[in-house]
Simulated assay, not measured.
Amino acid sequence: MGKHLDAAKAYFVRDGAGLLAGGRYALVHTRSLEFDELRPYVPGDDVRDIDWKATARTGHTLIKQFVSEKHHKILIVADTGRNASALTPSGERKCEVASHIIGAVGLITLPRSDEIGMVAGDRRGCVEIRLRRGETHIERMLHRYSQMVDDDPGAGDIVTQLEWVARHHRHPLLIVVVSDEPDIDDRLRDVLRPLTARHDLLWAMVADMPAVSAEDNGRGYDVADGRPILAADLLGERVITAYRAAEQRRRERLSELMTAQRIPHSYIASSRGIMPALVAMTGVYTRAG
């Protein structure tokens, strides 16, 4: 394997390959099916599978029978803006954790030869890497992500990438969004509606290190604009407490939006949290199915 996949593999459990293969932790439960044949309806069948045209034509109630597709089509949607250079609570750069998430999803696809691609960028626009299979393709995809993060990135704006996907991808995909926690606004709501209607979405949110804390030494700065962050002793405990409460409310509102849109999501604070987060998100599909 290349250096990027090798780095991701350090946080990848051996049985993680089963996450896409069906069963308890399968990422896709409902849309990974293709039409096989028609058969007579029997009590207990899902009425949503009835083929009404064939039923009217034959005079018998017929349902569509489906079989599992041999391969999945997975699209990574990643933010490569300046915010990706910030730190996580573990002290890792957010782009390092994001790269390991992308690599983990890539490793999951390898045993089944699933296709994987990527749409990545910042507020200025997107780069798309087409769906392909194989270790070499995934390593190149990770290398491109790393280049974009380190090569004079613009401001981060994951909605720009999501809007691109909504315009250009009409066939159902499993979309794994890898970004920080997005701002809740009308643009986000407007793009999620068509995406969730057509595709299955998972959202891996890479958490920020808290902007202020009681242990802060005042040497931090905002990666978006370079402004220094005031030291905790200058802000005072009252301001720090208010900041923590505001952050908690913001995260709760974001989680409510994702839940309302039926998007399994997880906050990932470190590379070691990647596999538990993937298992937790796939468990949502299990309970829903």
Rank of each mutant, 00 (worst) to 15 (best):
H4W: 14
H4G: 02
F12I: 03
V13D: 13
R14M: 05
G16L: 07
G16V: 09
G18L: 14
L27N: 00
E34V: 11
F35C: 09
R39E: 07
P40Y: 01
P43G: 07
D51K: 14
D51E: 09
R57N: 10
L62M: 10
V67L: 12
K70A: 12
H71P: 02
K73P: 01
I74Y: 01
L75T: 00
V77E: 00
A78S: 12
N83A: 15
S85G: 10
S85F: 03
S85N: 11
A86C: 07
L87M: 11
P89L: 04
S90H: 07
V97N: 01
V97G: 02
G106P: 04
G106A: 08
T109M: 05
E115N: 06
M118S: 13
V119R: 01
R130C: 02
R130G: 04
L131I: 08
E135I: 11
E135P: 07
T136I: 14
T136P: 02
R140N: 14
L142C: 13
D151P: 01
D152T: 12
G154Q: 11
A166I: 04
H168Y: 06
V177A: 04
V177F: 00
D180E: 13
E181L: 14
D183K: 15
R187T: 03
R189W: 03
R198G: 01
D200A: 05
L201H: 00
M209W: 02
A211S: 10
E215V: 12
R219G: 00
G220R: 15
P228I: 03
I229N: 01
A231H: 04
A231E: 09
A242N: 08
A242R: 15
E247I: 07
E252H: 13
E256W: 09
Q261V: 05
R262M: 10
S266T: 10
S270Q: 06
S271Y: 01
R272A: 15
M275H: 08
M281N: 04
T282A: 12
G283S: 12
T286H: 15
